[in-house]
């Protein structure tokens, strides 16, 4: 059973009178534990794909199975539960809550899921040590460097022990050196068994993934797993 199974996914946006096909006839299988980079020019639909995978957006047509379960038919609250339990997000602009400390930001998914304070504290303490943030626990995001902020965001994405981590340009706002650190962190997570899907412009970063998907005009132009029969 594949972790992710997309069949005939269509996503169109209405821009005034024109309808834009962000994703067209998309079929995709991603096995558990894979490390996938999604690349392509701006507007090729890679962010839309990531949003669909993360249940932040709904397709207009097609089915999406996550761990064998059709989730396009779930209610918004059931989808929220899937996001809470199975999916972690890492965003380009970090998306930390500015008024919360690093520790509170990391704990936020557990707070929202209603996990008791005691367990939260224990898990946050472990995460802070794992991500080298134990000296920064009480700092708010504006007191952290870009790399530290992204580490907080990754800690937050993993705190619920998800099966899937979706990263949208995770190094886009970072310099080369800190970007490298962040990629290493994500790859370490992948090595521990978490499926990792990264959207990136960076050819170098894309090349590090074990599988590359190249998008163009809402279609999958190239898939390194099946190079010869990719749909064109």
């Amino acid at each position: 059973m594949a972790l992710i199974e997309l069949q005939g996914i269509e996503r169109t946006f209405q821009l005034g009178d024109a309808s834009v096909h962000a994703l067209t006839a998309l079929d995709l299988r991603i096995e558990a534990g894979e490390y996938v980079a999604v690349m392509g020019p701006s507007g090729s639909g890679k962010s839309t794909l990531l949003n669909l995978l993360g249940l932040l957006d709904r397709p207009n047509a097609g089915t999406y199975r996550l761990e064998g379960r059709d989730i396009t038919t779930l209610s918004p609250d059931e989808q929220a539960r899937v996001r809470s339990q199975r999916i972690g997000f890492v965003f380009q602009s970090f998306h930390l809550v500015p008024r919360l400390t690093a520790a509170e930001n990391i704990a936020l998914p557990m707070t929202l899921a209603g996990i008791p304070q005691k367990e939260r504290n224990a898990r946050v303490a472990r995460a802070l040590v794992n991500f080298g943030l134990d000296k920064r626990a009480d700092h708010r995001p504006d007191q952290l460097s870009g790399g530290q902020r992204q580490r907080v965001a990754i800690a937050r994405a993993t705190i619920m022990q998800p099966a899937l981590i979706l990263a949208d340009e995770p190094t886009g706002n970072l310099d080369r050196h800190t970007g490298e650190e962040v990629v290493n962190l994500l790859e370490a997570l992948n090595a521990s068994g978490v499926t990792l899907v990264v959207v990136t412009h960076d050819q170098g970063m894309g090349a590090r993934a074990r599988r590359q998907l190249v998008m163009e005009d809402g279609r999958l132009k190239h898939d390194s797993a099946t190079p010869h029969n990719a749909p064109r």
């Binding site: 993360g54 932040l56 899937v82 996001r83 936020l108 899921a113 619920m160």
Partner: peptide, 8 residues
């Protein structure tokens, strides 16, 4: 909050 799994 929704992305992190908060229901409505």
């Amino acid at each position: 909050l929704k992305a992190l799994g908060a229901p409505a």
